[in-house]
């Protein structure tokens, strides 16, 4: 395991991805620095007619929202940056190196997925934490509930990795793997209009199909909304998207294992 972790870190450093994250963190900190305190508080806290609690209930805390968006961006970067790892590992001439070692394909995949999650997730967390620290130092905007969003970042990364890795293993192509991620994102968005589609059809079978597809499909955006609700102390009415999405992610990881076991190299 240590070998694979170490290799993942070295590859990350070698591909200069860490610098991309560093630049983004520096930019975010600079933006926080030049935002004047009053503007920040105004933008953040609101005030005036509506009191903070009310606003919070309607919009969610804007600091949290901003931070959530920033973390989502970091997760997106991590997914893009890591999408080439499996296609690279499985290319001809390279895969022979791994597969001639006394380690089963399933455990090779498992360990590599874990290493990617830990290493890229770690990068996202550290970047997010630095920006959070800067926000706290410059504007006193410390807020413990931000930890919930850090956890969300890890969960989202795992969900997206389940998609990018499955298609990376299947197609051995970085582009195809990223297209699949994009596709899942689009389909989730389309499925969010399922009530509209259901209103178009009278058939109960059609409705059942739409509901089933929605149920089994990964819903990372909804998961993200739920975490945001938790972070801003709002009530979560339905946990279904969280557990169905996690279940979908594990099914996708399982499929990756099955595929890598069957493939010829």
């Amino acid at each position: 395991m240590r070998g694979i972790l170490r290799d993942t870190v070295i590859e990350l450093l070698d591909r200069k991805i860490i610098w991309v994250f560093a630049v983004i963190v520096v930019l975010a900190v600079l933006i926080l620095l030049v935002t004047d305190d009053i503007g920040f508080r105004f933008g953040v806290g609101g005030s005036g007619e509506m009191d903070l609690g009310q606003l919070n209930e309607v919009l969610g805390n804007p600091i949290l929202r901003g931070f959530d968006l920033f973390m989502a961006f970091l997760v997106f970067l991590a997914v893009v940056a890591s999408a080439g790892i499996f296609p690279g590992m499985l290319q001809r001439g390279r895969t022979e190196f791994y597969m001639s070692k006394p380690i089963s394909r399933a455990s090779l995949l498992r360990r590599k997925v874990f290493a990617i999650w830990v290493v890229y997730g770690g990068l996202v967390l550290v970047s997010g934490f630095l920006v959070y620290l800067a926000a706290g130092l410059f504007h006193g905007a410390f807020d413990g509930s931000i930890l919930v969003l850090q956890l969300l970042a890890l969960v989202s990364l795992l969900i997206w990795l389940s998609v990018s890795i499955l298609f990376g293993v299947l197609s051995r192509s970085t582009v195809a793997s990223l297209m699949a991620v994009l596709l899942v994102w689009v389909v989730e968005w389309v499925l969010s209009y399922r009530e509209f589609f259901k209103s178009l059809t009278d058939s109960s079978v059609g409705n059942a199909i739409i509901d089933t597809v929605y149920f089994i499909f990964p819903k990372p955006d909804e998961v993200s909304d739920i975490f945001l609700r938790i972070a801003s102390d709002r009530t979560v009415w339905d946990w279904q998207p969280v557990w169905t999405t996690l279940a979908a992610a594990f099914v996708l990881f399982y499929l990756s294992t099955m595929i890598i076991k069957r493939q010829d190299f």
């Binding site: 001439g93 190196f97 001639s100």
Partner: peptide, 17 residues
């Protein structure tokens, strides 16, 4: 494969190492 060594043809070992 515990005590087996392999030198593949046209290998591309992890180039970052």
């Amino acid at each position: 494969r515990e005590r087996v060594g392999f030198l593949p043809e046209n290998h591309r070992f992890p180039p970052h190492l």
